[in-house]
Nucleic acid binder design. Sequence first.
DNA 1: GTGCCTCGAGTTCC
DNA 2: CTCGAGGCAC
Length: 745
Amino acid sequence: MTGAEGKSDSVTDPARLDPAQLDPAQLDVARLDPAQLDPAQLDPAELDAAGAEAELARLAQEIAAANRAYHQDDAPIISDAAYDALRQRNSAIEARFPALKRADSPNEKVGDAPAAGFGKVIHAAPMLSLENAFDEADVIDFAARVRKYLGLEPQATLALTAEPKIDGLSLSLRYEGGTLVQAATRGDGETGENVTDNARTIADIPQQLVGAPEILEVRGEVYMSHADFAALNARQSAAGGKTFANPRNAAAGSLRQLDAAVTRARPLRFFAYAWGVLSDPLSDTQSGSIARLNDLGFKTNPLTTLCRSTDELIAVYTAIAAQRATLGYDIDGVVYKVDSLDLQRRLGFRSTTPRWAIAHKFPAELAWTELLAIDIQVGRTGALSPVARLRPVTVGGVVVSNATLHNEDYIAGRNATGEPIRDGRDIRVGDWVEVYRAGDVIPKIRDVDPARRPAGAIPFVFPTLCPECGSQALRDAGDAVRRCTGGMVCPAQAVEKLKHFVSRAAFDIEGLGAKQIEMFFADPVLPIREPADIFTLAARDAAAIAKLENRDGFGEKSVKKLFQAIETKRIIQLDRLIFALGIRHVGESGSALLAAHYASWPAFEAAMTTAQVGEGAAWDALLAIDGIGPVVAASIVTTFHQPAERAAIDRLMAHLQVQDVAPRQIADTPVAGKTVVFTGTLERMTRAEAKARAEALGARVAGSVSAKTDLLIAGPGAGSKAKLAAELGVETIDEDAWLALIGSA
DNA sequence: GTGCCTCGAGTTCC
DNA sequence: CTCGAGGCAC
């Protein structure tokens, strides 16, 4: 439990410590009634506004001091439990007096709890994933998109690098003053695990660099060679240990050892291929930067090649594919990157992938096996999903026994628009089917062999009744999925909704995962059938004769921990709460939009209660939110008007204190919050690029001039828009003035 | 109306 | 990770 006992782990942020990992003995006092820590402190409920304001100021100061001591001085001044109590008290007061929430509120930095084992590391620059190309057409598309975005002349050369995509796990290494100070896994891209001790045991990773930038984050792939993998497995099986399915699993398993001595004994290797934050650029090109990393002492892949055309990219792909079997390590494709870092910067990023790179994947490994059965699963929204049960078969180093069959049409041999797939061949129980792993992860069925179809195999009949509750399962016209209409009556939907409620982006209750939800849902003594039941669990347990701590899999300690974890989530952020409700079409980002717009639960709840689908001011206000359309809006409003759903929400709310969301941070740029329009020919950048830049600076980019327009950027050839802007008195500037305004950096 | 782009939902194995 | 579909710009 890194850092949990207050040990000095310079990386674990105390703000991110998991309360459930703290010593329960300390917690009882600290958590259940923070005010008792100091009798002079009033319960948050008894504070008046002035008292609350002063108290928030004091807490902000104390928490900041504790953070400083922990981080900078490496000498904690208070126990983790006491620290936690301070934060808890701060949250409670903020929840009661949202208007008093300070700009420097310690809660602005609260994040997710870390998994047990390694400390968490927030990547200074996120570790992104790559878009995939599966054939030459995708590669040509990619190159064309890049050229279009940059506005390159047809005859202009676009240089790109091509390098093998190593099949291992990515790692980010941070060097300060030339010394390796931290190694972190990718994690979800935002937050990874601190594996510094283990990374130090890898020979390919230098501990010291000479002539490196002051701050340098090197990114690359940890992998294991085929020879080392075979030897390791031989050693493991000789010692009676378990063997690994493939080199990637072996590399991942070895790097994530809690005991660095074990990692040291594992023959891991490392190729550097990218970088994160750095204090000085390594070069002005991708290829130059890689060469520089090589000079600094990193292994870089020798097959990395600089190309000047799509044809050259494909040629390199073909050459690397031909060498694949003799490389001595696993690769799963070839990565192409725009060579000029200036162009990379101009291209920028979409939400999770850079626009300047793509991974050209090798064809997926395939395997034939027998389809034993088709089961139907019922999801949170009632969707009936067919799952193939397969005779276990090895595909790409992993044994697969289940695969998704998508939907009714997919089994029947049609796509969503009714056109035939697999030449119209349907899939039947007993068939031989071809399995692959999409993106090397998700098992799917690609084809079926009609020649091996057993006599008497009958077409699969997709159920029209829910297999879990017997309700009608209907399919809307134009919809690909069939849905159970049972709603809250359907046990499968109820369980899935509960799993969603406790999931990571929702209430994120430690110790109450999918498995525990299944168990509690079926529990005769202490059932959890709806979200409100979670918050009455401890009280019901106290009153019960058959107590939780006497069950299999639960002890006194784990029960206490669980109740503690539930207790802390009685205070919940508005966006998490909205997401947790599990309203169809309302996911993480929609919830954030709604929370930011309505700011408080009472405001949101009142608006949804008042609103009528398709009419009225409340409905119009909902639709006016950027990103909320009629389908999403109708889904929310309908949910709030269903008596059963509504009652369940009200029962839940009786147990919660909702933290209002802070008003959206307005970026500190000259164009933040402004609506701008581009017109005419832009000479220094393309339209798409200008738009992305403006949006990154907090501006809204519109297509046409109206009274709401704040600024028109007019290039040569501007016509009607410039005229209209003049009539409306909208400020109009040229491209150079615009670049000057935004500081072109 | 069409064509991006992004989000939501469902899914597997370790 | 991928597909389908919603939202929105053109």
